[in-house]
Computed example of a mutant assay.
Amino acid sequence: MLDPILKRIASSPVLIYILRCCIGFLIGYKLYITYPDFELFWTLLSIILVISPEEKDTRRLSIERFKSNFIGSAVAMVMLLFLEPNVYTIIAGIFVTIIVCRLFNVLNMARVALVALLIIMVQPHQTGFVEAPIYRFGSVAVGCIIGLLIVVLTSIIFRPLKRKFGIPY
């Protein structure tokens, strides 16, 4: 009775993606509700950004998204620590983010890095100006780590199931 259900789930990239996103949302939402003083909405958003819908190379793509999200966050944090936020700083941040993504060979994920950059640089901050980039960077980094762990741990669960049912992975 359970085998057909497990086979259906293990053979469906859409169901696996839905499961990963729901797990990620629940973890992120729990953090968001539990620690309202921190800007953990960005953790929640980063979790979802890192989880990959593509079944092929899911782990590799999630790692690339993790790297690019981390790059965008780091560039934004450095920019805000040393420069006033304005349109020119954001343009410079976009330039630096794309160059760094190229150097780390994740240019195909530069849009994720740019989203992280914009989250940190454009969105009004609830905390003080000095702490805001650090909190946002930490929030995005935690989300990236959680999203990557979800992908890795669910892969560890689904690989044996796929092997058992003869489903290619």
Rank of each mutant, 00 (worst) to 15 (best):
T127S: 15
L61H: 07
Y29K: 04
V115I: 15
L31D: 04
N108V: 04
F25D: 09
V112D: 14
M109W: 08
M1K: 12
Q126F: 11
I18G: 06
M77Q: 00
A74S: 15
L49V: 03
M1Q: 14
E39K: 04
Y169C: 02
A113I: 03
P124I: 14
P168I: 02
W42A: 04
I90L: 12
H125Y: 03
A141C: 05
P36I: 02
L15E: 01
I120L: 12
I167M: 01
P168L: 07
R60V: 01
I119S: 00
M77R: 05
L83R: 03
L61D: 05
I156A: 09
G24H: 11
L6D: 07
S62R: 15
L107Q: 08
C22G: 06
N69A: 14
F137A: 07
V140I: 10
R136C: 02
R65H: 12
F66P: 13
I16C: 01
K30H: 08
F38M: 11
I99Q: 11
I91M: 11
T34E: 11
F104Q: 03
F158C: 05
P85S: 15
Y135C: 02
F25V: 14
V96I: 14
L19S: 14
V140A: 07
A132I: 03
N108W: 02
L161P: 00
F70M: 09
I18M: 10
V130I: 02
I90E: 04
P53F: 00
S52N: 08
V122H: 07
G28L: 06
L6E: 06
R111G: 08
I23W: 10
F137H: 03
Q123M: 13
E54S: 14
V14W: 10
L61S: 09
I145W: 13
S11N: 12
F95M: 08
R159V: 11
L118I: 07
M79Y: 02
P85L: 05
I91R: 03
T154C: 08
R136A: 00
D57T: 07
P168K: 07
R20Y: 05
V112Q: 15
